[in-house]
Amino acid sequence: MDTVLVTGATGFVGKALCYELMAKGFSVNGIARKPVASGWPGAMGQLVIGDINGQTDWRQVLGHTGSVVHLAARTHVLHDTAADALAEYRNINVAGTLNLARQAAAMGVKRFVFVSSVKVNGENTPSGQPFTEDAAPAPLDAYGMSKCEAEAVLRQLALETGMEVVIIRPPLVYGPGVKANFRTLMRYVDKGVPLPFALMDNKRSLVALDNLVDMVTLCLSHPAAANQTFLVSDGQDVSTADLLRRLAMALNKPALLLPVPVGLLAGGLRLLGKGAVAQRLCGNLQVDIAKARKVLAWAPRVGLDEALGETARHYRGFR
């Protein structure tokens, strides 16, 4: 079996994916920007590449590689000090991706799986009208724009070279070890902090780490995945209020939710310059996974409550 090269192998998704691939018998080489002192699976090759951009030389690590999973990216940077944020995103997420893919195609790599983002579709959906893969892209921030542009150059490269490209767009990913806003919400629930979300009736799609990893693994080998784009989720959309109640249950804590009017809450957040936070907490963002179900016969491996339970158990062990 040819080796799978995984960029971003030390990240939240990358670590889980590498373990899954090895468990399924794949030979895996994980890419790291710098040497990893501990926590690296002994059976997996560790290849240090340095910074990823349009000039990175990948030839030294692409030998005997049959497929690539490209996870590494410039993601959301809090308090970004870059003079031109979009240019920084493009340097890594567009030029860096295309550079890797071009060298992979030249080295005979058969399939390139690119983990993109639902932000290519946009930031919100009307209730009951989820995003689909064939909807016109509508990214609103620099990260989403760079991912959208990366998708476009990969599709063109696939036409030019014959290398198969698969694009996967996940929404928010959660699971054991999750950080950022999701971990913050867990901490608030765990500490019994009252949260003003009882009246939220929005709908949002999430994807458990296990489900995303399972989807990526399937897309490495499924013949029908070639040159396709897929949205992925748990297939079970929830409101912010419902998510917090389920998190509380998983943590064996009461859900202390206050009935603050949604309009008042959203307006207050916007006045504080937190419009993006207001959208994530109050707005809808749903994705339709019918294409993955039909084309790949894929279904989410774990349900929402099971995945939240695993996330909570990991959180309690490391809080």
Rank of each mutant, 00 (worst) to 15 (best):
K147R: 08
I289F: 04
P171H: 01
G50F: 03
S116T: 05
A37H: 12
A135R: 11
E160D: 15
V69I: 10
V153R: 03
P261T: 11
A43S: 14
L220I: 11
M200R: 06
L212W: 12
G317S: 15
N252H: 13
G25K: 06
T229Q: 09
A105Y: 00
V189I: 13
L185H: 06
R74C: 04
R169N: 15
L71F: 05
W58I: 09
L220M: 06
T217R: 15
D214C: 11
G175C: 10
E310T: 11
N29H: 13
K147P: 04
D214H: 14
Y188K: 11
S205G: 03
R183C: 02
K34I: 07
P300A: 01
L244M: 12
L5K: 07
D305L: 03
S116I: 02
R187N: 13
E310D: 13
P137I: 05
L264W: 14
Q228P: 06
A158M: 06
H64P: 02
P261Q: 13
L285H: 09
V153I: 13
V94Y: 03
Y315V: 04
A106Y: 01
R280W: 00
G128W: 01
A105S: 15
A312R: 07
V4Y: 09
L220T: 08
C18I: 02
F230V: 00
Q129W: 08
M200S: 08
L231H: 09
T132G: 01
M215N: 04
C148R: 14
G11M: 09
L285W: 07
L265H: 08
L206Y: 13
S117Y: 06
D214L: 04
V61P: 10
Q286P: 00
I167W: 12
L281D: 03
G25E: 08
Q129S: 12
L209I: 10
A152Q: 15
A16V: 06
D288Q: 09
N93W: 00
V238T: 10
T65Y: 07
Q55C: 09
K294P: 00
G39S: 12
G268R: 03
D214K: 03
A158K: 03
G317Y: 05
T229P: 02
L185A: 13
E88D: 12
A85C: 14
E133I: 06
A250G: 06
L304E: 01
P300T: 00
Q279W: 01
A276R: 13
T132I: 14
N211M: 08
